[in-house]
Amino acid sequence: MKALVLAESLDGQRDLCAGARQIADEVVLAVVKGAPQTGIADKAYDVELPEGEAAENAVAGVQAVYDAEQPDVVLIEPTPRNKILGGMVAAKAGASVISDVASFDGDTVTNMYFGGLAEMKQKATGAKFYTVAATAFQPGEATGTDTVETIAYTAPAKALVLKGTKEVPREGADLTKCDVVIGAGRGFAEEADLQMARDLAAKVGGELGCSRPLAENVDWMPRNLYIGVSGLNLAPKAYFALGISGQMQHMVGVTNAETIIAVNKDQNAPIFKQADYGIVGDLYKVIPALIEKL
């Protein structure tokens, strides 16, 4: 079986090629915007993109790779650019891209429904195109040759014109890489009170995230720090749920945490059924005490 990997970032190229090895015998890599890494695929394609061109304009080059290689399955790193490049090739092949595949079972793949409330098992009836993250695969090594073929750039008939780019500093920590995450919920009466949660985070070497109401209803924290349905999906060593009721919509974001610790003043809150350790108490008293004792 042959897999074509369409990736952008260095990690993405390596992780998806390694993952592709687990489901295919032959792995081919295609990269637009920058040269592909070598030694991680049986063959790599450098799809040319002239300086200053929008990456999406290189779709003809990606299409050329697809046509030449005729892969059985296409694995796409889910970046916005690749969603367009890979999506265009899928559309031309009369296929749909199945997004954010979490696991493979032969031709049946699993991904999320309603942001994680449920899991969906699906099978592509035509050509197989998937966007997939490294976490869908077992950790493994990417192996390959140094073979690189260059595909010349062909401008599309209706090209996008890139007028400029600006670097933007990342807002907030990358919670997916943290061992300890603190989640703040509606139990916090005022924005200033979040400092308590930040202090606890500092004490335990963690970072702060939140439940949806804090990111969207009261805007106390940026949207990219919201944990749950259509937000972040985390698997930290420890997750602290502070003043969070434990609704499904939030908990699906931390279901893979090793340990869940909860603080809530309502003994009937659903969070306690989903916690390893919990304390029924006023978080304004518990958090300072916890900081002191840890």
């Binding site: 296929a95 749909s96 994680g116 098992k121 009836t125 306690f272 390893d276 350790y277 919990g278 304390i279």
Partner: peptide, 24 residues
Amino acid sequence: ETKVEVEDIKAPEMTPRKNEIFAE
């Protein structure tokens, strides 16, 4: 004209937790 067949939709199995709850 569907290109994907849905086989099943189910809520994920919740990881069993210790449920050790303390009083204030």
